[in-house]
Design a protein around this nucleic acid. Structure first.
Lengths: 155, 155
DNA sequence: GGTGAAATCTTATACAG
DNA sequence: CTGTATAAGATTTCACC
């Protein structure tokens, strides 16, 4: 993980379809060295995947909601596995504070949220309570992380 | 937006680097038709971007936190713009319920969170109160949305 | 580690059917 | 939309530093 790797990651995070020729020119390495590094970054698990971002609206996923979950210990693992398997569930975090988990959902509308809660979440025996928060508007939504330009003590 | 478009989106959401030849073979169209569709999907704003997913740990972004923000109306827009500009801020949603906004952060550690709150969030005049939630463990984290196989009344 | 160039493979464009 | 042809461009491989 040197300066070149970070620059490659930064470029590909923004535009995964940039050609190696292009990336090579921007980072100041040869095409073959750049390709080697991209392959190595994938193998090391630093680049974990390549995805096209899709607009939610055309796929009936315009409504974003967060659900705070209270869980009892018995059945917790099963509940988390079941929820993670749903493709309406975009995020599922075990959290600090009074609630157990925070779940982010993408659904067609509030009716679909109601259906998801009553048909998927409520039937899980571990779930004792839920608290839903609707996202009225989203100012920012990305998985991109900051790629520092200077060296760090990680990786 | 027909069956072919949805299948193309589904494939590219999972692997943005799949070659057109590959995608064409999987959806059952010619390479030229597939390329035309990919270009059209981008132009229509259905495919909004291409990104490499990066592992947070090697970039000192291993800590994920959610911050509930209470804002007063004056200066709200400026505060949201300022927070959105930060690359530690991955998500920023205007939400229903007692709090105004929900913000998702990725930072090196809790010390960095403390610094972000005191140096970036607290100085914003619109912010009246914050409540931080630390993600102890993340079971699922994706921006992928469900691509229904059947026709829908959207787009 | 890196380079550069040839060989191979992929993609883009255009057009006939 | 399919299929083909051609041109442009990308990737891989390899000899060499």
């Amino acid at each position: 993980m040197d300066h070149f790797d970070r620059k490659i990651c930064e470029i590909l995070q923004t535009d995964a379809r940039r050609s190696s020729t292009d990336v090579a020119a921007q980072v100041g390495l040869s095409v073959s060295a750049t390709n080697d590094r991209i392959r190595r970054l994938q193998k090391q698990g630093i680049i974990t995947g390549w995805q096209a971002r899709l607009a939610p609206a055309p796929f009936a996923a315009a409504t974003c909601a967060f659900v705070l979950l209270d869980l009892r210990y018995e059945g917790e693992a099963e509940a988390i596995a079941a929820l993670s398997a749903h493709d309406a569930v975009q995020e599922l975090h075990h959290i600090s504070g009074p609630h157990s988990y925070l779940m982010k959902l993408r659904l067609a509308d509030t009716a679909a949220l109601q259906r998801f809660l009553s048909e998927v979440v409520k039937p899980l025996p571990a779930v004792t309570r839920t608290e839903s928060i609707i996202a009225l508007d989203t100012a920012k939504e990305t998985l991109a992380i900051a790629v520092p330009t200077e060296e760090q003590e990680d990786g």
